[in-house]
């Protein structure tokens, strides 16, 4: 029996559960599961970073996630399961800002899908971040301009 692929794509306010995101793509038909976590690092552009605040246009961001997931499935196979969770709110250094899980019958496709998802969502999902520095200053980070077919 053909099992339908699963897509989970959400903007979330709470801590990302590693168990939850792993289970959401797990399947007995998979031989590979790739997990990617983006985390807040303690430095950027020569400045000591204390934390980052993330903001999103929730409905458009989740729609962009789904569009990107569907493109990946089109490219690398319909048997893949995907979960994307992106935090909003203020995060401290070391916290997970984004988690991407890909479950696939084979590792090659799982790695390709994971890489495609993170690269595309960074330039297409309406999400913004403001860095907070040890100096007490804060700054909006530069980004990629959207266009009419990108979100």
């Amino acid at each position: 029996m053909q099992e339908q692929n699963k897509i989970v794509a959400r903007i979330v306010e709470n801590l990302i559960s590693l168990d939850e995101i792993y289970i959401s793509v797990n399947s007995f038909k998979n031989g590979a599961q790739v997990l990617f976590f983006g985390t807040v690092r303690n430095h950027n552009d020569g400045k000591a970073v204390h934390g980052v605040s993330y903001f999103a246009h929730k409905s458009l961001a989740e729609r962009a996630f789904i569009d990107i997931c569907n493109e990946a499935l089109e490219k690398w196979g319909q048997e893949t399961n995907i979960a994307i969770l992106h935090r909003v709110g203020r995060l401290g250094v070391g916290q997970i800002s984004i988690a991407i899980a890909v479950g696939s019958p084979h590792r090659r496709e799982a790695y390709q899908v994971s890489r495609y998802l993170i690269e595309q969502l960074k330039i297409r999902a309406p999400i913004w971040k403001k860095e907070h520095y040890e100096s007490g200053e804060s700054e909006w980070l530069q980004g990629h301009a959207l266009c009419a077919h990108s979100a």
Binding site: Y54, H86, K122, P126, H144
Partner: peptide, 10 residues
């Protein structure tokens, strides 16, 4: 409407 500046998620 929403006005969306350049994005930088991830």
């Amino acid at each position: 409407l929403a006005l969306l500046p350049p994005v930088c998620g991830g």
